[in-house]
């Protein structure tokens, strides 16, 4: 004799929720699918369906996730649930790099939602999305508007995020062109300017070693060795110039990553603070 169907469904649902809260999205997706299948009404259980879509997103099954979010967004009656589906789809598009579409969906969610908290979340996501494309000033502007519009902790959060985004606009940068040029003039110097001292020393050593071998081969009038060493020296010199430019790119990416981490950290502390 087993459990009644309703009790079994409740048990499965709580198990799925526990898996979801624990971050085990693979198993949670399986359990939510089972719950929705057993209930026979996907639209009747919007929260479970939204969670299933988010699990699919987390598992990298973007197409399935978007399909489910779209279904929920178009068929659900409750405006807040529709807004949540639009926000979920926006998050998937953001992950895929379609930031324009993402902003459209967040704006739609903000228009559809009735709850204050949900409207703020959608607006905040829309204001933060330009950061992905390094459009710092646009993000600062949007977050500034939110700071003025929303009182209390929400406005404070928007203000803090605006400060972080403004820092992104003033990040110290290194030009790949100038660092490459510096390495062309003095091998390894471009890398050192970007703080990659050991890489710079290595580039200098390799270029100098190849150059010294080329000099020795030319001095010996050894044509074949000279050609070989000439090719090697040219290649190491080119590698050193490219290395200078690449070091600048790494430098810039590392600085931007600091800003992204700050934004993420701040969002993780909200609204629990």
């Amino acid at each position: 004799m087993g459990l009644p169907a309703a009790a079994l469904l409740t048990l499965t649902l709580s198990f799925a929720d526990a898996l979801y809260d624990g971050g085990d999205y693979g198993l949670a997706a399986l359990e939510y699918s089972r719950v929705l299948y057993e209930s026979g009404d996907t639209l009747g259980q919007p929260e479970e369906a939204l969670r299933l879509a988010r699990c699919l997103h987390a598992l990298g099954r973007y197409q399935e996730s978007l399909t489910l979010y779209s279904l929920l967004e178009s068929r659900l009656q409750d405006p807040d649930s529709r807004a949540l589906a639009a926000m979920g789809a926006g998050a998937v598009y953001a992950d895929l790099g379609f930031h324009g579409r993402s902003i459209e969906l967040y704006e739609e969610a903000a228009r559809t939602a009735t709850g204050e908290d949900l409207v703020f979340r959608a607006e905040l996501l829309g204001a933060l999305t330009p950061v992905y494309d390094r459009e710092w000033s646009l993000a600062v502007e949007g977050l500034g508007e939110l700071e003025e519009e929303w009182p209390g902790s929400r406005g404070q959060l928007a203000g803090e995020l605006r400060g972080i985004a403004a820092r992104g606009d003033r990040l110290p940068g290194r030009s790949p062109f100038w660092c490459g040029l510096a390495s062309a003039i003095l091998p390894g110097s471009g890398q050192m300017i970007c703080g990659h001292v050991k890489d710079g020393l290595m580039a200098f050593g390799m270029t100098a070693a190849a150059g010294a071998l080329l000099y020795a081969a030319v001095d010996e009038d050894n044509l074949s060795t000279s050609m070989l060493m000439g090719w090697l020296t040219f290649s190491f010199y080119g590698a050193n110039v490219y290395g200078g430019a690449r070091a600048a790119e790494y430098y810039n990416v590392a600085r931007r990553r600091e800003v992204y981490t700050q934004i993420r950290d701040r969002l993780e502390r909200w609204p629990g603070d």
Partner: peptide
């Protein structure tokens, strides 16, 4: 190709 190493934060604000 150097990647940004950017982890989107959108899911942090989804209340479900």
């Amino acid at each position: 190709h150097i990647m940004e190493g950017l982890e989107p934060w959108d899911c942090l604000l989804l209340p479900f």
